[in-house]
Simulated scan of single mutants.
Amino acid sequence: MRGLFLFSIVIIIIILKMFVFLNVIEPEIFTGGIIAILLLHSKLFLKINVYKLALIILLPMMFYNSLYPFEFIENPYKKFVWIPFGEIFTPDILQTLRTLSYKFFVYGAIIWCFYKSYPNAKWIIYILIAYAGLIEILQHFTLFRIGGLTEILIVILLYNFLPRETANFDLKTEDKSAIR
């Protein structure tokens, strides 16, 4: 029953994407949906950490999407945007909102997967700031992308929404008279 539900959801999403955005279905979206269904039915998720697998997929995907089409040039007239969210002030506000929503969603997923994979690690924020900074620096040298501080600020903002310390109560060391 679960397999039929997942299969129908993937087919519905692919059809909706075809009608809402474009008249074609990209091969990577179709094969990605089929691979996701096959992975969910395999025993793979019983053996590995799902969050680490998601990181293996999300980190290169974000890097690829941020630098595509990989046309690097040295342009002395191209400016690095030092004002965070400076790209909001462009004439095409719909495209800007789509890009910012994408960045918030993907960086949020990456931060959440890191947090669930390594819950007590303090180095997560430093790795993600370096990752976002590397992407922004490389975007400065691409033909069509604009490098700036936006992605670094998005990482910092989203990281601050993570739950900090969880309360661990051990009934053996606590005062049992308070429980009665």
Rank of each mutant, 00 (worst) to 15 (best):
R2T: 15
G3E: 04
G3R: 04
G3Y: 07
F5W: 04
F7S: 15
S8E: 01
I9D: 05
I9S: 11
I11F: 10
I12H: 01
L22Y: 02
N23M: 01
V24K: 12
V24G: 00
V24L: 06
I29S: 08
F30A: 14
L38E: 09
L40A: 12
K47V: 13
I48M: 04
N49R: 09
L53Y: 09
M61N: 11
M61L: 11
Y64A: 11
Y64Q: 08
S66L: 02
F72G: 13
I73A: 01
E74Y: 07
K78F: 09
W82E: 09
I83W: 03
P84R: 09
P84W: 07
G86N: 05
F89M: 09
T90N: 06
T90Y: 04
T99I: 08
Y102C: 05
V106N: 04
Y107N: 12
I110A: 07
F114W: 08
S117N: 05
A121K: 08
A121N: 13
A121D: 15
I124V: 15
I125E: 07
Y126K: 09
I137Q: 00
L138A: 15
T142F: 02
L143A: 10
G148D: 09
G148C: 10
L149V: 14
L162D: 06
L162F: 06
E165R: 08
E165M: 03
D170R: 04
D170F: 12
D170C: 03
L171F: 11
S177Q: 10
